[in-house]
C-alpha cells in the first residue's frame, strides 16, 4: 500500500507539473499570437476614414449613423481618434476624442456644438454602448487586446478555416463580459470571429470582422464588422470606406482643447 502510494505521489506531482508547464506554454503562446495580431494591425501611422454604422433591429428596421474618423498612432501608447458625427441630423457636428491607452482605461471627451464646450466623460466604466449600437466602448479598436488576459484554449477548424481559440478576460472590473473567445486565423493572424459572453457566462454578442490590406500590403485594417447581439437579436454592421493615409492631421488637434476644430 505504502509502496504504491510512494510510487503514485511523484507520478501525480509530475503530471501536475507537466500540466502547469503546458498551461504556461499555452499562455505564452497566446501572448505570442496576440502580439502577432497587434503587429499585423498597427504601423499605419495615421489615416482618415468614413465610418458608417447600420443599426438593424430584431424586426428588420434599420438606422444609419455616420462618423468621419481621424486616427493617429501613438508610438509610446496606442492611438488617438477624433470622430466627427455626420448623421443623424440632431447630433451632427458633435465630436468625440478618444485616447486608446495600452495599459489603462481609455479617455474620452465629447464636444457638443449646442453647448459649445468639450466635456470629459470621466467614467471608468466602458461597458456602455457606442452611439446606440451593439458595440460597447470597451469593444472599440485593438487596444482592448492589451488589457486582457489571454489563454489559448484550443485549436479549431471552423467554416473551413483553421483557428487558434483564445479565452480572454478583460482586466477592468467594470466590464460586462465574463470572458471573450477570440478566433484567430492561423493563416493571417487576424481575428475572424469574437464571441462575447456576459456575466452569466451566456453567449451575448458575436462579432465577425473583415480586414483588408493597405499601404502596400504592410497592414491590415477593418473594412467591415458585423456585431450581432444574440440576446436581443439586434445587429450593428459597421463599414469603413475611403481610407486616406495621405490626409494630413496636425497632432496638436488631437487634444481636449482643440479637437472640436476638426471637421
Amino acid at each position: 500500500m505504502n509502496k504504491m502510494l510512494a510510487a503514485l505521489v511523484p507520478a501525480v506531482l509530475l503530471a501536475a507539473a507537466a500540466q502547469a508547464q503546458s498551461y504556461e506554454n499555452s499562455d505564452a503562446r497566446a501572448k505570442e499570437i496576440i502580439g502577432h495580431v497587434l503587429k499585423n494591425t498597427t504601423g499605419y501611422d495615421h489615416y482618415a476614414v468614413d465610418m458608417q454604422m447600420q443599426l438593424i433591429l430584431e424586426n428588420g428596421k434599420s438606422f444609419q449613423r455616420q462618423i468621419r474618423q481621424y486616427v493617429v498612432e501613438q508610438p509610446d501608447d496606442f492611438e488617438r481618434t477624433v470622430g466627427v458625427f455626420k448623421t443623424p441630423a440632431d447630433v451632427k457636428g458633435s465630436k468625440i476624442l478618444m485616447y486608446a491607452h495600452a495599459d489603462r482605461p481609455d479617455d474620452q471627451w465629447l464636444f457638443l456644438p449646442a453647448l459649445n464646450r468639450p466635456k470629459r466623460i470621466a467614467n471608468e466604466n466602458k461597458s456602455g454602448a457606442f452611439f446606440g449600437s451593439e458595440i460597447a466602448f470597451e469593444d472599440l479598436g485593438n487596444a482592448k487586446l492589451k488589457k486582457m488576459e489571454h489563454h489559448l484554449v484550443r485549436e479549431e477548424t471552423y467554416k473551413g478555416r483553421n483557428y487558434y481559440v483564445l479565452k480572454s478576460t478583460p482586466a477592468s472590473k467594470y466590464t460586462s463580459y465574463s470572458f471573450i473567445e477570440i478566433y484567430i486565423d492561423k493563416a493571417t493572424y487576424l481575428d475572424g470571429e469574437v464571441r462575447y459572453f456576459d456575466k452569466k457566462e451566456k453567449l451575448y454578442k458575436v462579432d465577425v470582422p473583415q480586414y483588408r490590406q493597405f499601404k502596400k500590403n504592410t497592414i491590415w485594417l477593418p473594412v467591415r464588422q458585423d456585431m450581432k447581439n444574440v440576446q436581443n437579436g439586434r445587429t450593428t454592421v459597421t463599414t469603413w470606406t475611403n481610407y486616406d493615409f495621405t490626409y494630413q492631421i496636425d497632432p496638436s488637434y488631437l487634444a481636449p482643447e482643440k479637437f472640436m476644430k476638426m471637421e
Partner: peptide
Amino acid sequence: LAYEMSLP
C-alpha cells in the same frame, strides 16, 4: 448623446 455615451 453625451448621457448615452456615458451609461454603462
